[in-house]
Design a protein around this nucleic acid. Structure first.
Length: 852
RNA sequence: GCCGGAAUGGCGGAACCGGUAGACGCAGCGGACUCAAAAUCCGCCGGUGGCGACACCAUGAGAGUUCGAGUCUCUCUUCCGGCACCA
């Protein structure tokens, strides 16, 4: 055994041991409980970043823990390999996205191996491989035939200079990222997946997911957004033909207060009015500029223009003006809303701005209406009753809604309706580096899905995009084809799928390596659902919702009968954050890596001034996620090279609990390395000491107390305190005599506790001290209840809730004994002196509180 | 703007159910070893007052519930994540 801890040698040796024994390979085994532990697969962006190291270390800790607990654990790894960054890199370096992606995969795979993760590499997959994406295509054609995939128009960001569709990320302050041109909205035909058909189930099933964080379930619930309301029709005449403008509202009780209508700029009424009225046309045009992001739309100034059209109120027949409003979303409800200024904050502001009438129809506690001191009565469904509403006066919320809905129904101008916020999932992307949508457009037959025997539609891998549209659309060899139905010349669809499609079912594919006849096979029914899924909180809504949707789609295709939910337990890892700095170069931000910046801070730690190493001043860009675009990523490779994988793993676990954000700090890594060196040194000391049979009760108590706590902590996924427990056990061992039987037991416990976090050093020392053959296969240590027993307990004594002393009491002491011991404490007497004790609170095993 | 989350020493964090606030570690300070440095080891380490025993203050701000609040309730502030074409 080497005197000094040499992580490189230890890690090379342990990894060779695992490799030679295929230690991480697993197969279906009916004799053991299965445990499918999955971390979100990475996008092969180039190198691993700290978020990956954190994510996969957490997964590996659980994998190794459950193995030691006797489970058959599957932990696979793959690559979410399609996506925009590959195209950007291609443009920058003139290299095809395929080559860039495969090179990155090779590099990152080597990095993952060097970190010693217990991954079954025999199941590796990449979503850009035809073996994988052909099943995207296969499933899509099934959904298309069922009507669960369909075509309609969708709105995209359009760069008028590059003549290309931009991702939201490529729109910077309303302008194209490469051209700087003002971005426009454009409607184009796209394919959609009918996720709304599953809205009800996706919502109600959240209640049966006890293993998911409440936070994530709530976010999904709000995203799906079920609301009950009334669909109301407002009649109008257009060229002497009766038409109906439909709106949806959750506050039908305020219908009598509707004084205007607002429609989205994309609404047919707006288009009609724009044809006749230049002012409306100009406004609609204005609405078309700018990006499509909801976050942006929600923050713009609320503006509108009157269309000159009027509708009639379905109950009173009053004439109501129709406006176009830039705050009305075409994608939600009917793309039109009724304006009730007195009882909606946004309508109120709109009415004040444009001088529209405000009519109070709900009253809370009889307060009179007063525009100057308007309160959001609207919110108060509990206490409000109808006023100024004719026959509905004095009705509360629900009776008013019921009565109004019934009256509307009688006229054919309304019905109760359930409305969802969730929209169907537009999957078409006008991009090259993605899974081709398997559709052929035929003049005679329309949109024809590619038949199974012609799948996959293979993506050519040699193209280099240039930023002006999809190169597939310029490649006749790709798009020129014949119709599968009639055989005549036809054009292949050149859009590719949203990469979220790829990641919505990869977990099932991991179960079925080598299967080339089907999307998944019976092995998926053994492994699925995933028992523990681990990934960033930023995926709380979209990725997880799409996966839940896909699992149901696969269930309904008969691929995995009865399995509705893909992930039984979910751990949402916090993000790894770092500071960022930039300087302005010709109006653009040039991001400077934090390691190149020296910052001056005030006494509270806030940054007051920052300078780049080359001397120029830089602007503090705030703390945020590590990202390429902000050039603030910390390369874990440097960490591994300097300290080894075990230190990198131990640090990420120890630095903070997994669900917290982790603010990167180089300083703290040193302590983790120091700890591992001390473990090494202690093991050496124990190996060289003379053995004896002594049992050390105090040492055993301390070790088993920490073990017991660590076991609880690992089960509740608070891994940072498991690492702390390892340190505490080592501290205890170092204080005690090294040759005793208890010290030997303590080291054996320490190495097993440490092995999921720092597996290489644990593996090495386990062998070196002849504690067993392979620590990975050793049983997880159990706390010994006998070691935890104590004859005397220390109780805290408080007077009026303030700590005044402590007492030592026998374990079996009764209340009276404890109370008299507490009163006898001198410091307690000082504070009780001369006052009457009104009450004594005794918390067994903890404290006594005297109330005076 | 909407939805979700977080806030505890100089820093990361601990405190499981409402019961000793600051475990464990980092940084810092003092010391040992050394010609010296690194490494290692020992000690101190929230603030104020006090020689000291100890006392008072302190968990983003303000209120409330309680014998007792970092933990529960309400209001607010700041920061982080998501908002449907980044993955």
């Amino acid at each position: 055994m080497q005197d000094a801890y040499d992580p490189r040698a230890v890690e090379r040796e342990a990894q060779a041991f695992w490799e030679s024994r295929r230690s991480f390979h697993v197969a279906e085994d009916a004799a053991k409980p299965k445990f499918y532990c999955l971390s979100m697969f990475p996008y092969p962006s180039g190198k691993l970043h700290m978020g990956h190291v954190r994510n996969y270390t957490i997964g590996d800790v659980l994998t190794r823990y459950y193995r030691m607990r006797g489970c058959n654990v599957l932990q696979p790894m793959g690559w979410d390999a399609f996506g925009l960054p590959a195209e950007n890199a291609a443009m920058a370096n003139k290299v095809p996205p395929a080559k860039w992606t495969y090179d990155n995969i090779a590099y990152m795979k080597a990095q993952l191996k060097s970190l010693g993760f217990a991954l079954d590499w025999e199941r590796e997959l990449a979503t850009c491989s035809p073996d994988y994406y052909r099943w995207n295509q296969w499933l899509f054609t099934r959904l298309f035939q069922k009507g669960l995939a369909y075509k309609k128009t969708g709105i995209v960001n359009w760069d008028p200079v590059d003549q290309t569709v931009l991702a939201n990320e490529q729109v910077i302050e309303g302008r194209g990222w490469r051209t700087g041109a003002l971005v426009e909205k454009r409607e184009i035909p796209m394919y959609f997946l009918r996720i709304t058909a599953y809205a009800e189930e996706l919502l109600s099933a959240l209640d049966q997911l006890p293993g998911w964080p409440e936070q994530v379930k709530l976010m999904q619930k709000n995203w799906i957004g079920r609301s009950e309301g009334v669909r109301i029709g407002f009649e109008y005449f257009l060229e002497n033909k009766k038409q109906i403008l439909w709106v949806f509202t959750t506050r039908a009780d305020t219908l009598m207060g509707a004084t205007f209508m607002a429609v989205a700029a994309e609404h047919p009424i707006a288009a009609f009015a724009a044809e006749r009225d230049p002012e409306v046309r100009a406004f609609v045009e204005e609405c078309k500029r700018g990006a499509v992001m909801e976050a942006e739309l929600a923050q713009i100034e609320k503006k509108g223009v009157a269309t000159g059209l009027f509708v009639s109120h379905p109950l009173t027949g009053d004439r109501i003006p129709v406006w176009v409003g830039n705050y009305v979303l075409m994608g939600y409800g009917e793309g039109a809303v009724m304006g009730v200024p007195a009882h909606d904050e946004r309508d109120f502001a709109f009415a004040l701005k444009y001088g529209l009438p405000i009519r109070q129809v709900i009253s809370v506690r009889g307060q009179p209406f007063d525009a100057k001191h308007w309160q959001p009565w609207y919110e108060d469904k509990e206490n409000g009753v109808c006023v100024n509403s004719g026959k509905y006066d004095a009705l509360a919320y629900q009776p008013a809604v019921d009565a109004i809905a019934a009256d509307l129904a009688r006229k054919g101008l309304g019905e109760k309706q359930v409305q969802w916020r969730l929209r169907d999932w537009g999957i078409s992307r006008q991009r090259y580096w993605g899974c081709p949508i398997p559709i052929v457009h035929c003049e005679g037959c329309g949109d024809v899905p590619v038949p199974d025997e012609a799948l996959p539609v293979t993506l050519p891998e040699h193209l280099v995009p240039d930023g002006t549209g999809n190169p597939l659309a310029k490649l006749p060899q790709f798009y020129e084809t014949t119709c599968p139905s009639c055989g005549k010349p036809a054009k292949r669809e050149t859009d590719t799928m949203d990469t979220f499609v790829d990641s919505s079912w990869y977990f099932a594919r991991f179960c079925c390596p080598g299967q080339d006849q089907a999307m998944v096979d019976s092995r998926a029914r053994y492994w699925m659902p995933v028992d523990q899924y681990i990934g960033g909180i930023e995926h709380a809504i979209l990725h997880l919702l799409y996966s839940r949707f896909f699992q149901r789609v696969m269930r309904d295709e008969g691929l995995m009968p009865g399995i509705a939910e893909p992930f039984t337990n979910l751990l949402t890892q916090g993000m790894v954050l770092a500071e960022s700095y930039y300087r302005d170069v010709n109006g653009r931000r040039e991001w400077i890596h934090p390691s190149e910046v020296e910052a001056r801070r005030d006494e509270k730690g806030a940054i007051v001034e920052a300078k780049a190493r080359d001397g120029g001043p830089v602007v503090y860009g705030g703390i945020g996620t590590m990202s390429k675009s902000k050039n603030n990523g910390v390369d874990p490779q440097a960490l591994i090279d300097k300290y080894g994988a075990d230190t990198a793993r131990f640090y990420t676990i120890f630095a903070s609990p997994p669900t917290n954000t982790l603010e990167w700090s180089d300083d703290s890594v040193e302590g983790s390395f120091r700890f591992l060196k001390r473990v090494w040194a202690y093991a050496l000391k124990q190996r060289n000491s003379t053995r004896n049979e002594t049992s050390d009760a105090a040492l055993r108590r301390e070790i088993h107390q920490n073990l017991s706590q660590a076991d609880y902590d690992i089960q509740r996924h608070q891994f940072n305190t498991v690492a702390s427990a390892c340190m505490k056990i080592l501290n205890a061992l170092e204080r005690a005599e090294a040759g005793s039987e208890s010290a030997k037991e303590g080291l054996s416990i320490l190495l097993r506790l440490l092995s999921p976090i720092a597996p290489h050093i644990s593996h090495h020392l386990w062998l070196e001290l002849q504690l067993g053959e392979d620590v990975m296969r050793a049983p997880w240590p159990e706390p010994d209840p006998k070691a935890l027993e104590q004859d005397e307990l220390e109780l805290v004594v408080q007077v009026n809730g303030k700590l005044r002393g402590s007492i030592l009491v026998p374990k079996q002491a009764d209340r009276a004994t404890i109370e008299s011991l507490a009163r006898a404490n001198p410091n307690v007497q000082k504070f009780v002196a001369g006052q009457q004790v009104k009450k004594v609170v005794v918390v067994p095993g903890r404290l006594v509180n005297l109330v005076v």
